[in-house]
Design a protein around this nucleic acid. Sequence first.
DNA 1: CGGTCACTTGATCGTCTTCAATACCAGTGG
DNA 2: CCACTGGTATTGAAGACGATCAAGTGACCG
Lengths: 254, 254
Amino acid sequence: MIRPQLRPVVIEQALAAMPCTTCGARVHSACGAIDDHDLHRLASMAHIVEAPAGRVFVREGDPADSFFNISSGTARLFKELPDGRRQIVGFVGTGHFLGLAVSDTYAFTAEAIEPVRYCRFPRAKLKDLMVDFPAMEKRLLSVAANELVAAQEQMLLLGRKTSIERVASFLLAQSVLGVPCGQPRNQLSLKMGRGDIADYLGMRIETVSRAFGRLRAEKLIELLTNTDVMILDRAALEALASDGSLAARRPSAP
Amino acid sequence: MIRPQLRPVVIEQALAAMPCTTCGARVHSACGAIDDHDLHRLASMAHIVEAPAGRVFVREGDPADSFFNISSGTARLFKELPDGRRQIVGFVGTGHFLGLAVSDTYAFTAEAIEPVRYCRFPRAKLKDLMVDFPAMEKRLLSVAANELVAAQEQMLLLGRKTSIERVASFLLAQSVLGVPCGQPRNQLSLKMGRGDIADYLGMRIETVSRAFGRLRAEKLIELLTNTDVMILDRAALEALASDGSLAARRPSAP
DNA sequence: CGGTCACTTGATCGTCTTCAATACCAGTGG
DNA sequence: CCACTGGTATTGAAGACGATCAAGTGACCG
């Protein structure tokens, strides 16, 4: 474990993660809307920590005494059943905010996929800061509301979409990560493996693999490597993601 | 459609919906933490509306110009796919808050199950109020965080639980609605039909019915009527809800 | 190379869905 | 009082999708 430091480095990171401030769909970084003075106060109570890949840095059920802000890297957030079944409830990357849980314990486990650098804030002190600076609270509300909308979209996916629709939806969602305002990317480099995708989409790893295979066979995507995907036919992928249009012509197209 | 009125009736309702303020698991009503003066300002900008059963009062995709606070009744919130598949993302009852969506459109449709009375606030005015009275914003943040935790729990259910585990989880969740601090109720009166339960749990109506039947056969519940359920063996139901213990001894119990 | 690890592919199985019929319940009118 | 009706729930049988089990492929690395 790296010794915690008190440095404003985190702040530049957070600001850098906030692109065009007028865009409603932007990633809502937790400290993005804070002015310089507050940022310094914030920095003075933040610990910067680095976690190697595979490290669990938030555990479901543990006392929720801190908030986190990811400076770099990617982590998976998941919940588990006693028998080991796992559901990934989200992936978090640069600028994302963690630890909103109102209850006194964390609702999920957070584990680094690639090496993660994050800022850790004591919950109590942040509460004080929020009293003084409502902008922080407003931002947090915005973050929470955004995540809630995303969670509801994921419920639709998990409850009602077929396996191939889930993968199509997933790829499209990944293609707009970090490009909040402009054009979505057609080539993307997934940070997670098939197993994580499966646990995120409520599927088994073999089914994910077969769905990738079918999308490739249908010429909707190209697999450059295991992790690098090129979207060849975005329109068809979008049709597939929101309804069963492709599933209808499953065996062979007319 | 009832003509909107400007009355503080809503306020008493909201306060009544907030039981013991020290309980972390309480239903976080939107205006519960507001003092009298603010409450009157709030009431002055609220419209009270009544919606009969079946009425849609928020439609997914419509401009999100209002917030809502349910005074009485029950409504379902759902999202739909183009081909009609439906996923209910939640049920809202007395004291619940609606319309947090940050984006400019609603993320789900809201439809009354039983007759619903609700207060409608213009979004712009509420924003002004939040600036003056941070307590309101704090409460909203609390609401959102709570709903986020619930949404993640539902993702686990939808992605990883079997049909019977889903129904067991659902019944247990229903049994603690509105009794935030004390003992959960063992007899509950469901406000929604099998179809709504199915669309909430990501199942078909027949599968829900079979799950109820199996729980009854296993003596975990008793069906007084279609809507009134008695929990006979809460411990077994809880074991079933969080893992597959009962599923393991599926054909016959020892 | 031999090893590991992740992904893919194939074959079989099981749970849930689908389609269909029946039961139930409340309301209505003969 | 009871047949009729519409909506809802239950039950049964067949089928499909995804899970499971098992083998095979490929990349990376010591």
